[in-house]
Amino acid sequence: APSSAPSGSSLPAYFIKGSIIQLADGELKHVEDLKTEDFIQSAEISSELKIDSSTVERIDDSHTPNFAIVQFSVGEHRAQVSVEVQVEYPFFVFGQGWSSCCPDRTTQLLELPCTKLSVGDVCISLTLKNLR
């Protein structure tokens, strides 16, 4: 069964500092050492996945404690997508690194160095390549 972060967060274990991540070319890196280029190059190798730019348009409090609703404008068509996530959930911002709605909580729970996610930040997200 997939393990999760220590008490206080139900985020997956791969966001905990020190977790080992395998890039598409087989290289292993710690989650806290990942760079924008690692995601871009991995997506280029992938036959199924492509990276989209997702710009943060709004961040609102959720009715659920410790959750936030983040609205993104996704891809070249600027499709509006909202996700409800724990405030400590880290998104990877292009050229910047891990960012969350509550970076203090992310650092406390996951030990993952993190900055504050803000409106206008451009996050890395994935979509499926068109398979024809």
């Binding site: 393990s3 997956p12 274990a13 791969y14 966001f15 977790s19 080992i20 991540i21 395998q22 890039l23 598409a24 292993l28 989650v31 990942l34 690692d38 995601f39 991995s42 992938s46 996945l49 990276i51 989209d52 997702s54 993104f72 996704v74 891809g75 068509h77 499709a79 509006q80 997508v81 996700v83 998104f91 990877f92 996050c123 890395i124 997200s125 994935l126 979509t127 499926l128 068109n130």
Partner: peptide
């Protein structure tokens, strides 16, 4: 005796959210 424990390795795409709008074409 201590049994060796395997260290989990996670694929890179686990870390990236799927924000896939409905594709239209």
């Amino acid at each position: 005796n201590v049994e060796p424990r395997s260290v989990p390795v996670f694929p890179w795409h686990s870390l990236v959210p799927f924000l896939a709008p409905t594709q239209s074409d």
